[in-house]
Simulated assay, not measured.
Amino acid sequence: MLLTPVDNSEIVDALDGALDGGPAVLPLSSSDPRGDDLRKAMAPAEPTLPGTAVVVATSGSTGTPKGVELSTGALTASAAATHARLGGAGQWLLTLPAHHIAGVQVIVRSLLAGTRPALRGAQTFADAVASMTGRRRYTSLVPTQLSRILDDPVALDALRSFDAVLLGGAATPAPLLDRARAAGVAVRTTYGMSETAGGCVYDGMPLDGVRVRVVDGVIELAGPVLASGYRLDPAGTAAAFAGGWFRTTDLGMLDDGTLSVLGRADFMINTGGVKVAPAAVEAVLAAQPGVAEVCVVDLPDEEWGQLVAAAVVPTDPARPPAAEALRAAVRARLGGPATPKVLRFAGALPSHGPGKVNRIEVRDMLRGT
């Protein structure tokens, strides 16, 4: 049996039961039009893998969504390692969708700490924080949420009260991270995915029990936090999970045990025979004055094969930074091939999950320029 709750409170109750040996949970969102399709794709009537507590549907940004099966052991190991890294168990505030892995883990960590997570709902961030009762307080945000809170003095004051604020879901621009820390926010960057029960590398260092290696430039992860496999997909499971290691689709490098994530391997842009990492271009653009968010993608080109293209969200839409100044910054840091030949300002970046930019829609948006 596979429960499919959609309301946040129902998801909390269902996960509480699953952790106690009850039916596995496929958390869904009432606002997601794919709900019925996900139910059918995950085949609730089919048995789950042994020990499965939750099935998390991936975003499906590059294809059909997959159901990642996570055991009680994996969830518990992740929660325990997180609390050990942060200094002790505590109550968590849920600000992220409960059907994504980051939201699931906020709930699980709080439940395993013996508290019920605080649910933000429609109230303000500050009011949600005021409703918390735990001695230690934690929350998990994506960069966009953090940026908005930093612009709200009341919300920022509430955020300062947290013992730790996990930040993940997308690469965090260095200026945003610096700004948060200068404001007194205890931010910890995280790296992980549904297949690793959420974040498993904090500030570049793996959690206790987690192992990291880079093979041919690609990040691989191992440890008790790994998923059991993909729902009803033995071939996909065998391809991604081998010898106790999960092979990600992310490029990275290790420097004295510290992991740096360089971006998705399948996002690399080959322009005129030169490979350009979108994450590197995004980092340069995001550091420029007047830039709030940025996404860099490839566009097809007859002469170069692929072009580097950028969608930039200005801090002040009425006064965007000069496009040539942005290009010049990239050219000076990364060279000519990495310089965006197409650069367009946008009011916002389309997304397909908490903090995850929908690059397919960004590419479609830039094709018309």
Results as ranks from 00 to 15, higher is better:
Ala79Trp: 04
Gly273Asn: 12
Leu38Asp: 05
Ala57Pro: 08
Asp250Arg: 09
Leu326Lys: 09
Leu70Gly: 05
Leu366Glu: 06
Asp32Asn: 14
His352Met: 08
Lys341Asp: 08
Gly355Glu: 07
Val274Ala: 05
Ile107Cys: 01
Ala287Asn: 04
Glu69Lys: 04
Gly244Asn: 08
Val55Cys: 12
Trp245Met: 07
Gly229Pro: 05
Ala311Gly: 09
Lys275Ala: 08
Pro33His: 07
Thr48Tyr: 00
Thr271Glu: 03
Gly244Leu: 11
Glu220Met: 09
Met365Ala: 15
Arg135Glu: 10
Val284Pro: 04
Val294Pro: 04
Gln288Trp: 07
Thr258Leu: 13
Val362Ala: 02
Ala338Gln: 11
Val108Arg: 00
Ala239Gly: 11
Asp203Trp: 08
Ala240Trp: 06
Pro340Val: 12
Val106Gly: 02
Gly67Ile: 12
Tyr191Ile: 14
Tyr202Gln: 02
Ala329Ser: 14
Val308His: 02
Thr82Met: 13
Ala126Glu: 15
Gly252Thr: 10
Arg331Pro: 03
Val218Asn: 07
Leu156Gly: 08
Asp7Gly: 12
Gly134Asp: 11
Phe162Glu: 00
Val291Ala: 07
Thr48Glu: 03
Arg367Cys: 04
Ala174Gly: 04
Arg367Leu: 13
Asp16His: 13
Asp7Phe: 04
Pro153Cys: 07
Met42Cys: 14
Arg120Tyr: 03
Gly199Arg: 01
Trp304Met: 14
Pro44Lys: 11
Leu177Ala: 14
Phe246Tyr: 15
Arg344Asp: 06
Pro50Val: 14
Ala74Asp: 05
Leu3His: 11
Ala238Ser: 14
His100Leu: 06
Met268Arg: 15
Leu141Arg: 00
Pro44Glu: 08
Leu176Ala: 09
Leu334Tyr: 02
Thr258Asn: 10
Gly244Glu: 07
Val291Lys: 05
Val276Trp: 02
Arg367Gly: 05
Ile101Glu: 00
Gly243His: 10
Ile101Arg: 01
Trp92Asn: 01
Gly198His: 01
Met132Arg: 03
Ala348Asn: 09
Asp298Glu: 13
Leu349Gln: 00
Ser71Ala: 10
Thr62Ser: 15
Ile219Cys: 06
Gly236Glu: 07
Gly63Glu: 10
Arg231Asp: 11
Leu166Pro: 00
Ala287Met: 06
Gly21His: 04
Ala325Val: 14
Gly244Pro: 09
Gly223Asn: 06
Arg247Pro: 11
Leu26Cys: 10
Met132His: 07
Asp255Arg: 15
Leu221Ser: 03
Gly184Asn: 07
Ala286Asp: 03
Gly305Pro: 10
Thr315His: 03
Ile269Gln: 05
Gly305Val: 12
Arg109Asn: 14
Val225Gly: 01
